[in-house]
């Protein structure tokens, strides 16, 4: 730590690229994998299990990505889970009630209409994000309360739109199934890790990550979260920028809603149930501070991965899944403790 201020060594450059928290998270991830492998007689360490973890990761990651932006800017977005429910239901409603299609439309034939449904889901998320932005920046409601109200409203609307039941429409389950490299026998070596939908989620995460760490958008976000007054004094339009952040969080939740639709083959009014808490947990485990100004996309991606490693690991080792909540709680507490220690040491 002492010589880091003198000159930027390769190690320091590497560290500044991924951040301290990230290397810690990778260690946690490896330790968890080793423990779960040991206690599951080796069954945990398989392509199948990691494909399952990635499928779960794909469902939650964009909520965590959006939450990371919001949290770094010093806010919080509780509406993301309900937005998933609402946008998946609206996507279903669009295909079933407006276009008059049903579940007979399957596979590649459904791609055109599913692409349209994806746009509808994103638009739905944007609407929720816009309402959040107005509540926070025009009506001056604190983010916690503003997004708590949209959380309730979106959940209620999801029930009204769907009539309270899953809306089954066109589907293509191959989009959520891991793709294997052709020519390699899966019995010998299973290459099926990533489904097309998970790959899309990775790409979206990377794009938002670039905006956060390499563009002015990110610079403004950190500036506002660190000190909104100073940011305003420096000429940043804080209202406009935080509005953008809630819009992005809404749109990302809309994509997650579309992911839920593809995963279930139907728009379910409970498909986003409880997801907001996991998104916040993943963000905090990933090293973001609810005080604002601190957080990294790598951390969030790994934090989300750790959450679902725990979920799958407990099931594979046969430990009652009730323990998941306890382990997640420990991880959150540990993450915050590490942050505090790092702050003391003058590092971030």
């Amino acid at each position: 730590m002492t010589d880091s201020k003198q000159a930027l060594s390769v190690r320091d450059r590497a560290r500044s690229l991924v951040g301290n928290q990230t290397s810690l998270l990778i260690v946690v991830m490896i330790v968890l994998s080793v423990v779960f492998t040991a206690f599951s007689n080796g069954t945990f360490l398989s392509t199948g299990v990691f494909a399952n973890i990635l499928t779960d990761w794909g469902g939650y990651i964009l909520l965590a990505v959006g939450q990371t932006l919001v949290v770094i800017s010093g806010g919080i977005d509780l509406s993301v889970g309900s937005t998933v429910s609402l946008s998946s239901v609206v996507a279903g409603f669009f295909m079933v009630k407006i276009l008059g299609l049903n579940s007979d439309l399957k596979g590649v034939d459904a791609w055109g209409v599913l692409a349209l449904a994806a746009l509808v889901a994103i638009a739905t998320g944007l609407v929720v994000g816009a309402v959040n932005a107005v509540l926070i920046n025009v009506l001056k409601i604190v983010p916690f309360i503003a997004t708590l109200s949209t959380f309730g409203a979106a959940a209620g609307l999801a029930i009204i739109v769907s009539g309270g039941m899953p809306m089954q429409g066109p589907s293509d389950f191959s989009l959520i199934n891991p793709v294997r490299i052709p020519g390699i026998d899966p019995a010998v070596f299973d290459t099926g890790l990533f489904s097309p939908m998970v790959l899309v989620m990775i790409i979206v995460t990377a794009i938002v990550g670039l905006f956060l760490h390499k563009a002015r958008f990110g610079l403004y976000t950190y500036a506002i979260g660190s000190n909104a007054f100073a940011a305003r004094a420096a000429g940043i339009n804080v209202k406009v920028h935080t509005s953008k952040i809630y819009l992005v969080s809404g749109a990302l939740s809309g994509i997650a809603g579309f992911y839920a639709y593809i995963r279930l083959g139907s728009g379910s009014p409970s498909s986003g149930m409880g997801m907001e808490l996991y998104a916040i947990a993943a963000t905090v485990i990933g090293g973001a501070s609810l005080m604002g100004g601190v957080g990294r996309m790598w951390g969030t991606a790994l934090g989300t991965l750790i959450l679902f490693t725990v979920q799958s690991g407990l099931l594979m080792t046969g430990v009652a899944t009730d323990w998941k909540q306890i382990i997640v709680a420990i991880l959150i507490a540990a993450a915050v403790a590490v942050q505090t220690l790092q702050k003391k040491n003058g590092a971030r």
Binding site: N52, G59, A260, S271, F308, S312, L315
Partner: peptide
């Protein structure tokens, strides 16, 4: 109460 979690359990 989340069908996505139910699907995840079955996958595992």
């Amino acid at each position: 109460a989340n069908p996505q979690t139910a699907a995840s359990n079955v996958n595992n």
